[in-house]
């Protein structure tokens, strides 16, 4: 007979599963908070750009014997700055600037891995992540990053709210919007660097955007979006891990698809915005 307690507890007897679940839950919260800013600033794609652009940094860091996180952070941040410069200094539109920067940094990364003979960098793990290799020290580091970023968001919440809602008004009122932008990009890069170990650079945006955008359909304020998004993100990563454990699925894709399922259910049934709820309420309304 199905016993929910055994179902939930069985994976926990393995240390690697405990670490992985804890890591996933922490990242679910962190990604929802920083991802909320990406969504409301309408720059979700920059998450993808940064995620791909960490690859050359990792390769160089490996070659020079640096901490991989540092290398990843530097080139990730650099890519966002390159996008901003192209957008501000030329008539090129931001989506074109992003596509070009993303592919170029990624290409440079692959090239460096080949040329610098840093073949020990496991490309598959880099692309798809492997949450089961998470160590307790990884969990600690991620917890610290998360606490740091949450504290910063709390400290600068009202300024970031102003900037993300009305950048022009915020700048006119004298807020240093360039620094706020850079801070935001820095926090997002840090989030991505911490998260890619779990889902890999190809899927990291799903964790950044998915839970927060699902929460967006339920609530009416940014901080509520972060809180609900954090809960959903933690539930989705843990849910993805359990399905990965019981159905023998790769964990990264499993997490991403659990997130997407939650989003689709919300899209159909959320009380205010749900496509079907609206249809039931006003059966004759045009979609």
């Amino acid at each position: 007979m199905f016993n929910p307690f055994t179902f939930l507890l069985e994976p926990l007897q393995f240390a690697f599963m405990r670490d992985a679940l804890l890591m996933g839950a922490i990242l679910g919260v962190l990604c929802a908070v920083t991802g909320s800013y990406l969504i409301v600033r309408q720059m979700s794609m920059i998450g993808d750009v940064i995620a791909h652009s960490v690859v050359p940094g990792i390769s160089l860091a490996f070659f020079w014997g640096w901490d991989l996180t540092l290398g990843a952070f530097i080139t990730g941040l650099l890519s966002a700055i390159v996008v901003a410069l192209i957008e501000q200094r030329s008539p090129v539109k931001v989506d074109a600037a992003m596509s070009l920067t993303l592919t170029s940094f990624f290409a440079l990364g692959i090239l460096l891995i080949a040329r610098l003979r840093t073949n020990q960098v496991d490309l598959t793990k880099l692309l798809f992540g492997d949450i089961l290799e998470v160590t307790p020290s990884d969990v600690w580091r991620t917890a610290l990053i998360t606490l740091g970023i949450l504290l910063l968001v709390k400290l600068f919440y009202k300024e970031l709210l102003f900037y993300s809602f009305d950048p022009l008004g915020a700048q006119a009122s004298g807020l240093p919007v360039q620094w706020l932008y850079l801070g935001l990009i820095g926090a997002i890069t840090l989030t991505i660097v911490a998260t890619m170990q779990v889902v890999g650079v190809l899927l990291v945006t799903a964790l950044l955007i998915g839970p927060a955008i699902t929460a967006y359909l339920w609530v009416k304020e940014l901080h509520q979006m972060m809180i609900l998004g954090g809960i959903l993100g933690a539930l989705a990563t843990v849910g993805g891990m359990y399905s990965s454990y019981y159905f023998d699925l790769p964990s990264g894709p499993a997490i991403v698809l659990v997130i997407f399922s939650g989003f689709v259910i919300t899209l159909l049934f959320s009380p205010r915005q749900g496509l079907l709820t609206r249809h039931w309420r006003h059966p004759n309304a045009q979609p």
Binding site: Q42, K158, F162, F165, D166, L175, V219, K220, L222, M225
Partner: peptide, 28 residues
Amino acid sequence: VAYVPQRSTIDWDYPITVENVVRLGRVR
């Protein structure tokens, strides 16, 4: 200086309540 930008520069789907929009005027 108080500045009211053009309506088109604002994303009106932003998750924020009326009260909190007005309070932004006190941030600085």
